[in-house]
Write a protein that binds this DNA or RNA. Structure first.
Lengths: 117, 117
DNA sequence: TCGGATAGGGATAAATTTATCCCTATTGAA
DNA sequence: TTCAATAGGGATAAATTTATCCCTATCCGA
């Protein structure tokens, strides 16, 4: 595990939410879990661009921050299901707003991103 | 300047918005510019936790992505003012929603963040 | 009986982001 | 006349995040 070397800034709401949501795949994980893709392997298939490892790490962080919970079924092969806590559910409209803006400006964003590479 | 070594994923709205908004201080820069703090030195005073350098770098990226524009007054000592483009303004409600969630859950978030250090 | 599916952790490398420090230039104020 | 304010870039180091690769274990189907 990585040990943080600096203390986070916690001045405003943006700092606070950043501490729990700033991670390349976190919003997507929450979104897909909310859509019903609850098993790690399903999530990995939904987000093939992320490595298996990061998803595990980020899921663990979401769990530590009480945005998701986890049920481990004592079966073999192993079965695990994530679910959103109420706290996590309260983030869904926010993530929706973020993603919607991205979708609405899809073309323009693509053009801009490509232009700046 | 840093040269990107991998190609970005541009699959969904979240990927797209991430390309222009994923940066520790970008949302705050947009927010404060919208509030009327337009000169670099003012922004630096509003965000003392960020180094002068990063703010310059991130402002430049916001400019490249057409979220902000910049007026350079040909005076000495130099005077520069940033402003939001219409495209940038359209992001303000989104950033507002994000920050509001953080503010609403201020106490709980602080507790969680501290617990996980 | 061998390979794939299942879940996930450790060690390490690579990529990326952010911080530090230094340099340019000019004006006005102490 | 020396220092702060103004804006911002280059070089480099440090911090952080993400990717790669390997290992554990069990059951089912071909």
């Amino acid at each position: 595990m990585y040990e943080r070397k600096t203390t986070p800034n916690l001045n405003c709401g943006l700092d606070l939410i950043g501490e729990v949501l700033y991670g390349k795949w976190k919003m997507r994980l929450l979104w897909f879990i909310n859509e019903g893709f609850q098993r790690p392997s399903e999530l990995q298939r939904k987000i093939p661009d992320a490595s298996r490892r990061v998803l595990n790490v980020q899921l663990k962080e979401l769990e530590n921050h009480e945005l998701v919970g986890k049920v481990i079924y004592p079966v073999v092969p192993p079965k695990v299901e994530y679910f959103l806590t109420d706290f996590g559910k309260s983030l869904i409209p926010v993530i929706g707003a973020v993603g919607q803006w991205g979708d609405q400006h899809d073309e323009r964003l693509r053009a801009l991103i490509l232009k700046n590479m």
